[in-house]
């Protein structure tokens, strides 16, 4: 390998990269090193995976529950969604979102204006930016405090229920805490943030927060695709809870909502979580398709640009594989821990 001029050391790590990356979560410019480019790639992969997992879960649960709906048309629409999306390659969907939906949007001058100061154009989605002033930390503390108080109160309430059988209004108290405390802090700190709305100046927008079309296309494609698989898992999980459980709960006089929340969902989650984990892992791995639409994720930045410039194929590929393995391991460990809480306790 040395004969072919392929480096075998990690010297390249601190050399200047010299290429641009258009969206970075951590500071990066053309003078930064290859090592920094690597961290930019990792951060972008994590960002799109995390957003994708949240969005895919929400869509997937909605579609999965709709498939079981008593409403005929809702069930049919959800079924069609699953059957159509699942059977079309993800790459085709990504290219469609990127090249046929987001790229043909009008130029910034003719942007589509949505309510709330949001603009759509071929350079992405421009949102109003939030500017934090002194005192914003107070609101943050208030939010953390309200979460902590709610957890403490629900623990206390379940203790009371175990001892006396009385139910305390956990939901109402939680809601009150979650709206009241941050609102009070907001007023006390004197409106600690303001929105800056994007303005059209010359050929582009100034101010505001820009979401690049690459990111939007990747996020949309990944979550829409993965949601179709999650929907099937959710449907299977809920159907696997035997009908006798629901009927017994109704016979005991539990209303529909409580039957779902206390009887069906905990048992369904037990079946849902393991395959859901593997879908999350698939989503993370599929985020590497970013390379096809130019979103600077780990593969595009590191296994693409860095590999091409340094030629250090062995080291770069080894590091890339290691990063994906570590992300996969952490995700499955987290989901296993979550699963343990719901698993049947057997002797």
């Amino acid at each position: 390998m040395r004969q072919r001029g392929i480096p075998l050391t990690f010297d390249f790590w601190n050399q200047t990269a010299g290429f641009q990356i258009n969206q970075t979560l951590i500071p990066y410019d053309t003078l930064s090193s290859y090592g920094q480019a690597f961290w930019v790639g990792v951060a972008n992969t994590l960002l799109v995976s995390a957003c994708g997992i949240v969005l895919a879960t929400v869509i997937g649960f909605l579609i999965g529950i709709s498939r079981l709906s008593n409403n005929w048309i809702a069930a049919k629409v959800a079924t069609s969604y699953v059957e159509v999306i699942r059977n079309i390659p993800l790459l085709l969907q990504l290219l469609f979102w990127y090249n046929a939906v987001l790229k043909p949007l009008p130029a910034p001058k003719a942007s589509i204006a949505l309510p709330g100061g949001i603009y759509l154009n071929n350079r992405g989605i421009i949102l109003p930016a939030v500017e934090f002033h002194a005192g914003a930390g107070l609101v943050g503390i208030a939010i953390v405090a309200s979460v902590a108080f709610t957890i403490a109160f629900s623990a206390y309430a379940s203790g009371v229920q175990k001892r006396t059988g009385k139910q305390l209004p956990v939901l109402a108290v939680g809601l009150l805490l979650h709206t009241g405390l941050p609102l009070a802090a907001y007023v006390a700190a004197g409106s600690p943030w303001t929105f800056t709305y994007p303005e059209l100046r010359g050929f582009n927008f100034r101010g505001g927060q820009q979401i690049y079309p690459e990111f939007a296309a990747l996020l949309l494609g990944l979550s829409v695709y993965t949601a179709s698989f999650i929907a099937e898992i959710v449907r299977g999980g809920i159907q696997a809870v035997s009908k006798g459980q629901t009927e017994a709960a109704h016979a005991l006089g539990l209303p529909q909502g409580k039957t779902l929340r206390l009887v069906v969902v905990p048992q369904a989650l037990r079946i849902i979580i393991p395959p859901l984990t593997s879908q999350y892992l698939n989503l993370i791995k599929n985020s590497s398709l970013a390379v096809f639409i130019g979103y600077p994720d780990l593969v595009q930045v590191f296994a693409g640009s860095v590999l091409n410039q340094t030629g250090a194929a062995v080291q770069v590929m080894a590091i890339t594989l290691a990063v994906y393995l570590v992300i996969s391991l952490i995700t499955s460990a987290a989901m296993n821990a979550f699963n343990l809480r719901f698993a049947l306790v057997e002797r």
Binding site: M1, L289, A313, M317, T320, Y324, L325
Partner: peptide, 21 residues
């Protein structure tokens, strides 16, 4: 476990760039 833990793209990269090495 290793192959299932990494994306298909990286496997293709490996096959394409590393195999000749």
């Amino acid at each position: 476990e290793v192959v299932r833990g990494v994306p298909f793209i990286t496997v293709l990269f490996m096959a394409n760039f590393m195999m000749p090495l």
